[in-house]
Simulated assay, not measured.
Amino acid sequence: MPLIDDEVAEQLEEQLTVLENEVNLAFFTQEFECESCQTARQFLEEFSKLSNKINLEIYDLKEDSDKAEEYNVDKIPAAVLLDKEKKYSGLRFFGIPAGYEINSFVNALKLVSGGESELDDEIKDTAAKVEKDVHFQVFVTLQCPYCPKAVEATQQLAYENDNITADMLDSSIFNHLAVKYDVSGVPKTIVNETEELVGAQPPEEFLNAIKNL
């Protein structure tokens, strides 16, 4: 049974016509797939067929450990976005980018395909000057209408600077991490294990968190 129905598929096809260049999706799973891995794989297989500019490559977390290490993937299911040259963008989705997160997933694809972020020039300049390694982990649920704003804000910052990585994590799939970081509400963003922001904050607040590292 398809995960993306015909009506939604038609809407997505229209949105994906704006992709400027090819985008490569590196999906990580394992030989004996967990339920969420199977669902994520099916979702991405269906999604990638909606545009001839989306290339999906499937890797095994253990068998392809060199690739997993290259993109610092340590849990599954995981989707890593790469540009047309297969350059790592710093944008990753851990879980299934469906529900409300389908919006952040589409916008991430647009970015990596060569689009422009919605950040104003001052924020872009500030983000581009970040010299330390920054890791955003945005915990979401697929039923949360506010979560995509946090995911998109952090991923837009990551797109401006190779030192920044921005992840979406489905807290229902990675419950052990949600417990570790005391995620009682979403979106909740963890920055380098030391800073945290709750709610759909604007990009400026995520930059302020970087300054506090």
Rank of each mutant, 00 (worst) to 15 (best):
A79R: 08
Y181K: 06
E69C: 11
T154C: 15
N52C: 05
K188M: 05
E122V: 14
I96M: 03
V151T: 11
I58C: 10
F174Q: 03
E152Y: 12
V73L: 08
E10G: 04
V198F: 14
H176L: 11
E85L: 10
H135K: 13
A9H: 00
L82E: 08
E118R: 13
D125H: 09
V23H: 00
P77I: 02
E196K: 15
S104Y: 00
K132H: 12
A150K: 03
L169S: 03
K87S: 13
T126W: 11
P187D: 03
E22P: 06
G90C: 10
Y146M: 01
E14K: 14
E7D: 11
K124F: 03
E14D: 09
V23Q: 00
D5T: 05
Q137W: 09
T39Y: 05
E20L: 06
V191E: 12
V106C: 12
A79G: 07
D121G: 04
Q38W: 05
N55G: 04
K129T: 10
F94K: 03
A166P: 04
A26G: 07
P202G: 04
Q15N: 11
F28D: 00
N161R: 02
N21Q: 14
Y159L: 02
E45A: 12
A200F: 10
V151R: 08
V151I: 13
G99R: 07
L109I: 10
N163A: 02
V23E: 00
Q201I: 04
N72W: 08
P148G: 09
L82F: 08
E57S: 14
F136C: 08
A78I: 09
V191A: 13
K87T: 14
E205P: 00
G90V: 07
V106K: 13
K180P: 05
L3F: 07
F32H: 13
S36N: 14
A158H: 11
Q143R: 13
T165A: 09
T165R: 14
V73S: 06
N55H: 13
L3C: 02
M168L: 14
E14R: 13
N208T: 08
H135C: 06
V198T: 13
Q156S: 04
D133Y: 02
E205C: 00
K132W: 06
S172C: 05
A128V: 06
Q155W: 12
E69M: 15
N107Q: 15
A166I: 04
N163T: 02
K84I: 12
L50N: 01
S117R: 06
H176N: 15
K110A: 12
F43N: 01
V23L: 00
E7R: 09
Q11W: 05
